[in-house]
């Protein structure tokens, strides 16, 4: 019994000691700010990442349902999280401590920033600090899209400040109802062209259109747009309630059912009326 109390005391104390240890972030790391703008799409990327990698310990933000570890993982929407600068959060996610895993080799820097963008979406007062791009000039990206039917490839021509350039990242997706289906990731060639495979068996809508999301990235400059393109064959979309079935609503009941039903109703009423008519005739005779 005594041992138990001692053990409990020890464990509590241990927890306290660990809690008391501040997780210090080097000053230059804490000052780091995101080069990416925390816009809606970026926040959504972060949300998906969070649900995959973080929910198991940190719980759902704003609900304070994180795991009861020591030190507590905390809720990303809480004051404890929001009072820290972006750089400190970035450092802690990257380096980890104790049971907090090291994400340095798992998540790319852009992905970690998207997580922070997601955390900040719960803070109405947050204003994103500006990133000093220094000597690097953000180039203005533009692109044109085309579909080459002969080789079933999506062709993206990228202009960086009006010029074609080699080695710009291009990725493309088909936008589905619930998610983005990746077509691939590639770089532009010396003509500023990027080719992406499109599976010809992908069904389009009634006109054969597919919604294509193209994302172009050069350094910190990102440009993306969704375009509806005629790529697939026009699809024959049939309604699942077409035709007459036993399970259809009354107005679309099978013909044989309607006929049989009407015959039965007419037959029964006919017999009843015939009997009544006969009774009247009997009375007349009698």
């Amino acid at each position: 019994m005594k041992n138990y109390i001692l053990l409990i005391f020890f464990v509590l104390n241990f927890g306290f000691v660990v809690n008391a240890q501040e997780w210090t972030v080097p000053a230059e790391e804490a000052e780091k700010v995101s080069p990416y703008i925390f816009e809606d799409d970026f926040v959504t990327d972060g949300e998906i990442l969070y649900e995959n990698s973080c929910t198991s310990c940190h719980g759902t933000p704003t609900e304070n349902n994180f795991m009861p570890f020591s030190p507590p993982p905390g809720d990303p929407a809480s004051e404890q999280f929001q009072s820290q600068p972006d750089g400190a959060l970035f450092y802690k996610i990257q380096k980890g401590r104790g049971i907090m895993p090291v994400f340095e080799n798992i998540l790319a820097e852009e992905e970690i920033w998207s997580l922070i963008a997601y955390f900040r979406s719960f803070n109405k007062e947050y204003v994103q600090p500006e990133f000093d791009y220094g000597d690097e000039v953000l180039s203005e990206l533009k692109f044109d899209l085309d579909f080459d039917e002969n080789i079933d490839k999506l062709v993206v021509k990228v202009f960086s400040d009006g010029e074609v350039e080699e080695g710009i990242d291009v990725s493309a997706f088909v936008v589905g109802m619930f998610g983005k289906f990746p077509l691939g990731k590639t770089k532009t060639n010396e003509l500023g062209l990027a080719y992406l495979d499109v599976d010809p068996s992908l069904p389009g809508d009634k006109q054969g259109n597919l919604d294509i999301l193209v994302r172009v990235r050069k350094g910190y400059a990102i440009e993306k747009a969704t375009t509806s393109m005629k790529i697939a064959e026009p699809a024959q979309q049939t309604s699942l309630i077409e035709g007459r079935h036993l399970w259809s609503t009354g107005d679309k009941a099978p013909v044989w059912l309607l006929v049989t039903f009407l015959l039965i109703v007419v037959g029964i009423w006919g017999v009843i009326l015939y009997i009544i008519f006969g009774l009247f005739r009997l009375k007349k005779i009698g």
Binding site: I48, E51, N52, V174, G176, M177, F178, G179, K180, F181, P182, D199, S201, L202, P203, D205, A235, Q237
Partner: peptide, 22 residues
């Protein structure tokens, strides 16, 4: 996985990975 058969795409509810249904 949940999705639309007409699009032939289904999305995983956890990983949000979108794949071809067929």
């Amino acid at each position: 996985y949940f999705g639309d058969e007409n699009e032939d795409l289904v999305t995983n509810g956890t990983t949000r990975e979108t794949v071809r249904l067929s």
